[in-house]
């Protein structure tokens, strides 16, 4: 299996789907001549031409709305947001148009589009550019939300998302773009709503997604030194959610730590905690723990940013609390 970076895997997914289906197109800021703000669309303009790789003005509300309209009339647009921080400018189009038209038109219109781009904190981007918005989109019926953690998952899930008839919010952790991993060649599809065990274990389940999976794996290594064997469940798709995979893991380990980069209040981790207590109440041997960013805007200062974001030590401590 060839090794490639996360951004190359995304590029491959989009290119393969554009090759396969002439209705697929890519639009967004700098996707064409600049080859993408994060170089995800490297070479795609040259390969597919201006009609299918479209540079847009800096006007998210406008071009996401164009994407919704294009999808309603039969195209399959991939709309790249430079980062999901700017999705706030387009949020009316995403939540009130993309997510609702299928239902409001009694099924006459479908919106098969992918809204994708970078999300989460990277190094010192400051409060406004370090947001984790998955809870907002997960709270919106009509959307699907995908957050891959590996290059292979990124490819398999993006291809499936492009083929899906519903609008998909596809959030890529900015710090993962350069991460490399083995990626299957050719037609590699991962169904939406199917999670993955990133590390089997028996003592405690950690549910983590996107770049928090890497943090969970580091914590697992630390815990392994002390004889604690954690299982890491990556739901990959947050909506729809592979809750059965989480439940079966919790039923095995009897303990759960939820790891998310987003701030804790009203977050996606809270939804997992609700479902697990509801369906696995009699399987829990300890209160569910959650490791999240501190409940503040992400600071710019390097030292403060490090305190706010989840780290290995906090994950290790949370796992140990479940084992007390």
């Amino acid at each position: 299996m060839p090794k490639m970076s996360f951004r190359e895997a995304l590029n491959q997914a989009m290119s393969e789907e554009m090759q396969r289906d002439p209705n697929v197109l890519l639009m967004g800021e700098e996707v064409g001549y600049y080859n993408g703000a994060y170089k995800v669309s490297q070479g795609m303009l040259a390969r597919f031409g201006e009609k299918r790789v479209i540079d847009t003005p800096i006007a998210e509300c406008g071009f996401v709305g164009i994407g919704v309209g294009a999808a309603m009339v039969g195209l399959r647009p991939i709309v790249e947001l430079m980062t999901f921080n700017f999705s706030l400018v387009a949020i009316d189009q995403i939540i009130n148009s993309a997510a609702k038209i299928h239902q409001m038109s009694a099924g006459q219109f479908k919106v098969p589009m992918v809204i994708r781009g970078a999300g989460g904190a990277a190094h010192q981007l400051g409060a406004q550019h370090s947001n984790s918005f998955e809870a907002v989109y997960c709270n919106t019926p009509g959307l699907k939300v995908v957050m891959p953690s590996t290059p292979a998952d990124a490819k398999g899930l993006l291809k499936t998302s492009i083929r899906d008839d519903d609008p998909v919010v596809f959030i890529e952790a900015e710090l993962l773009y350069g991460e490399t991993g083995e990626v299957p060649e050719g037609e590699y599809l991962i169904p939406l709503g199917k999670g993955d065990i990133k590390r089997p274990g028996k003592d405690c389940t950690i549910v983590a997604y996107s770049k928090m999976v890497g943090l969970a794996l580091q914590a697992a290594k630390e815990l392994e030194k002390e004889g604690i064997d954690v299982e890491i469940v990556d739901p990959r798709t947050l909506r729809p959610l592979d809750e059965d995979l989480i439940f079966s893991s919790v039923r095995k380990t009897n303990r759960l730590v939820i790891l998310q980069e987003a701030t804790p209040h009203s977050s996606f981790g809270g939804e997992i905690a609700y479902r697990v207590q509801k369906h696995c109440f009699d399987d829990l041997d300890a209160p569910i723990e959650r490791v999240a960013s501190e409940d503040v805007p992400v600071p710019y200062a390097l030292n403060l940013e490090a305190i706010v974001l989840p780290d290995v030590a906090r994950v290790v401590a949370a796992v140990k609390r479940t084992l007390e």
Partner: peptide, 12 residues
């Protein structure tokens, strides 16, 4: 004491 504290799993 009258009340017993046990995890749900332990009770089951």
């Amino acid at each position: 004491s009258g009340r017993i504290f046990a995890s749900p799993l332990a009770r089951r």
